[in-house]
Design a protein around this nucleic acid. Structure first.
Lengths: 204, 204
DNA sequence: CTTGTAGTTTACTAACTAGTAAACTATCTC
DNA sequence: GAGATAGTTTACTAGTTAGTAAACTACAAG
């Protein structure tokens, strides 16, 4: 009953896009509404604030896009070190494409927004932390598998995964600041170095 | 001739503080003026925009604080790997102190502001990139020295330094998002792992 | 002690921004 | 086709914001 609408989805998409391209603090509700083609009254019908919209947008982005992508890249059907190499290769390719589409390397929306808002907005901070923790577990699982099959030396997989993830996010940040996806290129090999793996040939 | 003033310095300090604590986009010129105890007319006497102020504040922060600190920590009088271990130990301690003073882990102002503004403000982006490139060279030099004395295996020092720096900034970002300086603790050892150094005892 | 210079203060405008209230409209169910 | 429900639109307020202009003040050198 009532009438149908895709305004909520339009707002979520517009918000994610604008915040990713620009930044959380600089994007106004008016700008999000305009990009979404939705009037401000409707915005407040669906969301109580910009903050609430951002949390919902990050959640949506992860559950409807990110998760599938990570599940595929970290599939247990792939040898563990190949998962990691493939993931970094894919990240590089993603940012190349983002630069083509948006004219800029944008990096990781979660980490950027999290770092920007962490001292100002607890709900965004918590959502970002939740998603990042999930992502770290993909690394952890692959590292554990690699250690089990003996392709890298034994060691604390939790610590190693955090380390690898920090390397990843730090490099993404650099790529955004330099607006150059090539900054991500060395990650494929650097990650293997970090884990103590022997060098192998490139991923397909 | 004319009259004396410390308004410019007050504005630079207030701006750096506020932008570091909150974020660039969310801090207004009015807020900076209030914190600095300076009227807006004076602000526009010294700076043409918030962007120009931010560039000047980052520059000042590096030349009057950062540089001395890095010079001391990366002094050639210290064995190369100890420089790196000492640097990460010092970064950890800094963030502990920052959390005590500001109630929050704040990370690296340069990287945070750079990531936030890179798609929006070319002058800030360029200044941030300049400072970050300088910082990477401290790592590079220490790595070269470590390789020369044989305490780590040979390898491309430029690539390794970028890698180490990304690990550093990524971890600082995580520490800010989690508001927990302990996230930085493992960097001392993780950096040695990354460089392929044998484990040694803790720094003094 | 006066004149030029460097910096300060006030008062203002115009645009923007978040947020609200209420009238309005489409669609489903009975 | 009468409600009820779900969503939309308009028009508004009150507060904030960037930026400007011009009068004002302290100081130093001649």
């Amino acid at each position: 009953m009532g009438r149908k609408s895709n305004a909520k989805e339009q707002l979520l998409e517009a918000a994610l896009d604008l915040i990713w391209e620009r930044s959380y603090g600089v994007v106004t509700i008016d700008a999000i509404c305009e990009k979404a083609g939705v009037k401000k009254g409707s915005f407040y019908y669906f969301f109580e604030s910009k903050s609430a919209l951002a949390v919902a947008a990050l959640e949506m982005s992860w559950t409807t896009c990110g998760k599938q992508k990570w599940d595929g890249l970290f599939s247990a059907s792939i040898p563990p070190l190949e998962r990691i190499r493939g993931f970094f290769q894919s990240s590089y390719e993603s940012q190349v494409k983002i630069k083509q589409d948006h004219g800029q390397v944008l990096g990781c929306p979660c980490f950027s927004v999290g770092s920007e808002t962490s001292t100002q907005d607890e709900t965004i901070r918590a959502k970002v932390q939740e998603i990042l923790q999930i992502q770290i577990r993909y690394f952890e699982s692959a590292i554990r598998d690699a250690q089990a099959e003996g392709s890298i030396p034994a060691g604390n997989p939790t610590a190693k995964s955090k380390c690898l993830f920090a390397l990843f996010e730090g490099t993404l940040g650099q790529a955004r600041i330099q607006n150059d996806p090539e900054v991500l290129r060395p990650l494929v090999d650097a990650s293997m170095d970090l884990l103590g793996a022997k060098h192998t040939q490139a991923v397909g």
